[in-house]
Amino acid sequence: MPKVTYSLPDGTVHAIDVPCGQSVMDGSVRNNLPGIVAECGGSCSCATCHVFVEEGQSFFDEPTDEERELLEFADGARPDSRLSCQLILTEDCQGVRVTVPDTNG
């Protein structure tokens, strides 16, 4: 099972097993990690699951125009910003590391 490492706003780091087919957001919500709010349940509507993908960006599909637009004005957006509901894990995903900003409103 892919393991995802989450660095949280409170400075803690959590390595979590996330089943294939689930998203980086799902892994956080399932384990009650703070920082990813995920209001809309993963339908790319709310932009409250913003993360920086520090390692493993290439494992994921390119962002859609919709995701790109939501991120353009997200607080603290960077070139490695993604919405974690759109980051679906596969068997290939090894060593994914994300940082959760403290601005997921």
Partner: peptide, 11 residues
């Protein structure tokens, strides 16, 4: 269908 306008508007 205008996420950028929405996010900017909110700001």
């Amino acid at each position: 269908n205008s996420p950028a306008e929405f996010m900017a508007g909110k700001k």
